[in-house]
């Protein structure tokens, strides 16, 4: 990176961190710049890699079927006009219906059936038994149509302990993730920008 790029990046980093001292115009500027750049970048990528090659170019070659997705996309934009907003439902229905058709079988297999099979097949070891007990106990916790008393209540309480372990591990990993981001930024500020740190 050139000195100008490094300095600009460093100043924007400091502008974001200035939020630690409270909301201020520098933070707002950096935040708005990030949102604007992200939207602009996504728009250009979509235009260049999807709409242009997959809709406009085929149409110039006389392939009229490519007009259909373009029209459906335009129908979604009609939500912005209250009088014609109902037309957008056609596109949304297609997106939701098609999306559900593709996603549900895949999700059912990957997130439910394969996970159930792995849980059941894992009981050949102690760890597998612990996982099985944890899954069953956690499931009982989420049954709210039956009072959590007696054996059922004990199972639900064990499930809660399993969830607490999960939340604790997730919190620790979240801390690790945020600290890693901070380390990356400090390395950039003190190394690439100021040259105090050497790699």
């Amino acid at each position: 990176m050139s000195l100008l790029e490094t300095t600009t990046t460093a100043l924007l980093t400091l502008a974001i961190y200035s939020f630690l001292a409270g909301d201020n115009p520098f933070y707002k500027f950096a935040e708005h710049l990030l949102v604007g750049l992200t939207i602009g970048y996504t728009l250009v990528i979509t235009l260049k890699s999807v709409i242009w090659p997959q809709a406009i170019i085929p149409m110039t070659r006389g392939e009229m079927p490519s007009l259909v997705p373009l029209l459906l996309g335009c129908l979604i934009l009609l939500r912005l006009v209250p009088r014609w907003a109902g037309w957008s439902r056609i596109s949304l229905a297609l997106v939701v219906g098609g999306g559900a058709g593709v996603a549900i079988p895949a999700m059912l297999k990957a997130r439910v059936l394969d996970q159930m099979a792995a849980t059941a097949n894992g009981v050949t070891s102690w760890a597998g038994w612990i996982i099985l007990i944890g899954v069953l106990a956690t499931l009982t916790y989420f049954v709210f149509t039956r009072a959590h008393r007696g054996a059922w209540g004990t199972s639900a309480r064990i499930g809660r302990y399993f969830m607490m372990v999960f939340f604790g591990a997730t919190f620790a990993y979240t801390v690790m993730s945020r600290v890693a981001l901070l380390i990356g930024r400090l390395e950039f500020l003190m190394g690439d920008w100021l040259g105090i740190l050497r790699s």
Binding site: A110, D114, I131, Y173, S177
Partner: peptide, 24 residues
Amino acid sequence: TAVMVTSYIPYLESHQLTGIVAGL
């Protein structure tokens, strides 16, 4: 990234993922 790791460990245990590089 580390924050995602606990959500993906079940996939590793079930061999749906072959491996994980867990954050930093």
